[in-house]
Design a protein around this nucleic acid. Structure first.
Lengths: 337, 337
DNA sequence: CTGTTAGCGCGTTCAC
DNA sequence: GTGAACGCGCTAACAG
């Protein structure tokens, strides 16, 4: 029971001015084909002259359709997620859906509270850049009965649908690639596997490849650290000091490899002669370094696009055959390894 | 008039179960201090047991408050904007506002249609990464009577409030910096000034500095091109060929300078001995190149944070003293110039 | 193609 | 501290 603010105008006002009923205005806005040209013209004129802006809040309540898709990513300022969001946004906007965006941080417990709040706005679908959700979040989403697309890893147990690449398979493939190029002593850098499930999968992929290559894993060749350019430099220095016999190093996240290359350059270590270097993700800076970086390429934008397309398909009532969509990855062969 | 989907539960159901009226449930959710502990407990229990999720759509319609802030940026996958959005999001989430995010592309006409749609969702405030809006967009926003913060350039004529840095002043300052270090023949690279008002301002700043330095502008030392790493390489090569006498080049957008540095490195041109190089924006890759890049640093994240704080202040009914907030910039002195 | 009626699920107002 | 009644602005359903 809110007092009108005076300047606020509603459909009734438009209708009165256009000499039609409110419902006709409503239809002119949402299903123009159901309204005569003549009426539409008068309505458009009325809308323009009083400056009416369709109230989607009321529309949503009445029609039970909000036109909102919620998206959750760990951070908005990470270009990797930005790329996925761009793809998602591009697809959704064509179907006239708006994105309600939130950043979650990295903890599944926070995520549940966030998802609850978002669901309050009754999004028609949800994109989740996270594959680890609590059981109660999962139930909550099931109950809300909206399409959910997750990304982040090729989980076998998505809430609904997952569109991703396999951290395991990609890390395994890169390690195999290095092995096949003749490197025996292959170092590996990843995030803390206790905190980061994706890091764990990448490490498992690395170890699986070593096994396939008949190489015995060596704890000293595995480093867990936090992500960043500087950390890449430091990791490189650490390897050079503690295990100067290392032949190749696979840095399993974006900035490390670039930092390591810089460190090699600074110290005069030739890449790949002295140390071969491989990286992960090949979108931002990686394509530009010299020598060209050998890296795993993840189709980040495409993940967003495909996620959007699947959400739209589900919103149209179509069924999605396979809930696990593997968009794969690519080994980009540069000259660094 | 939508048939309940069966599983959907409303406040009434919660109320019935908790032996209170719907309004008490409503209060327990929005003003807990107005409800007895005992009632709150029963209500919480009821909520959990039937899995109720507060419907903010109905709430919004009734209370005239959506808890939504709309944000428009040209692209989501540009880390520069991502950084601003992250700052904005961090501030807003603390006050329990959600971000409705859209990307506009770069044309003011498209922007108006987008803003219209967004306003349909009745955001309580709007963030706009753009300072060029059509007159009708401006009027539309005035009529909606919500706080609007713009960013992108320190315009003197914001729709409402602008939080930014000055493209003009920053480009002028960097050019002065180069001049004071003794460079006379200073090249300049920017975007097409007819399409990009920020590029125009930067160019004007460059020219103003030359004037102040008593250097006659030289058309051959000014290049307009599209943004990118490769374009930076090409621009560098162009300068070296056509004007080998150029002493310093100011690349007035992020990736160009990095590309130029790479090109110099590739060709064996010493930086800054053979060519001095200065860049713009110092957040992503720039801090990592060798030699360290001299660049204009724009506080992208802070722009978002301050924008958020101002929006919140306005939403609380406080007045904002100065509608033009200059967050300035910084000349980061590296070794490249 | 157009209009009438009856809510959508909440929050405000005012009474108790 | 709690409740009853009303309506926010729009659209589904149905009738014409």
């Amino acid at each position: 029971m809110v007092k009108k603010s005076g300047w606020q105008t509603g459909m009734r006002d438009v209708a009165r001015l256009a000499n039609v009923s409110a419902i006709t205005v409503s239809r002119a806005l949402s299903r123009p084909e159901k309204v005569s040209e003549e009426a539409k013209e008068r309505i458009q004129w009325a809308i323009d002259s009083i400056g009416y802006v369709h109230n989607r809040v009321a529309s949503s309540l009445s029609s039970n359709r909000t036109g909102i898709v919620a998206a959750v990513v760990p951070r908005i300022d990470n270009p990797l997620y930005g790329s996925t969001l761009q793809g998602l946004s591009d697809v959704l906007r064509q179907a006239n859906y708006r994105l309600m965006l939130s950043n979650s941080g990295f903890y599944p417990e926070d995520l549940e509270a966030l998802v609850r709040t978002l669901l309050g706005h009754r999004p028609e679908a949800l994109f989740l850049q996270s594959v680890t959700v609590t059981e109660s979040t999962r139930m909550l989403l099931k109950r809300m009965n909206i399409p959910v697309v997750q990304a982040g890893d090729l989980t076998r147990n998505p809430v609904d649908v997952v569109v991703s690449y396999s951290n395991y398979a990609s890390a395994r493939a890169m390690t195999m690639h290095l092995g096949k190029r003749g490197y025996k002593k292959i170092g590996f850098v990843c995030n803390d596997v206790r905190l980061n499930p994706r890091a764990l999968q990448r490490k498992r992929g690395y170890l699986a490849a070593l096994r396939a290559l008949g190489i015995k894993p060596d704890e000293e060749l595995i480093l867990e650290t936090t992500h960043g350019f500087r950390e890449g430099q430091e990791a490189m220095a650490t390897f050079a000091e503690r295990r100067p016999d290392v032949e190749a190093i696979f840095f399993a996240a974006e900035l490390w490899a670039v930092g390591a290359m810089a460190e090699c350059h600074r110290r005069g270590w030739k890449v790949p002669r002295r140390f071969a270097i491989a990286g992960y993700d090949h979108g931002g800076i990686a394509p530009q370094v010299t020598p060209a970086l050998t890296a795993v390429h993840i189709p980040r934008n495409e993940i967003g696009r495909v996620a959007g397309e699947i959400l739209l398909r589900r919103l149209r009532g179509e069924t999605v055959e396979n809930p696990i969509v593997d968009l794969g990855f690519q080994i980009v062969e540069g000259e660094s390894a």
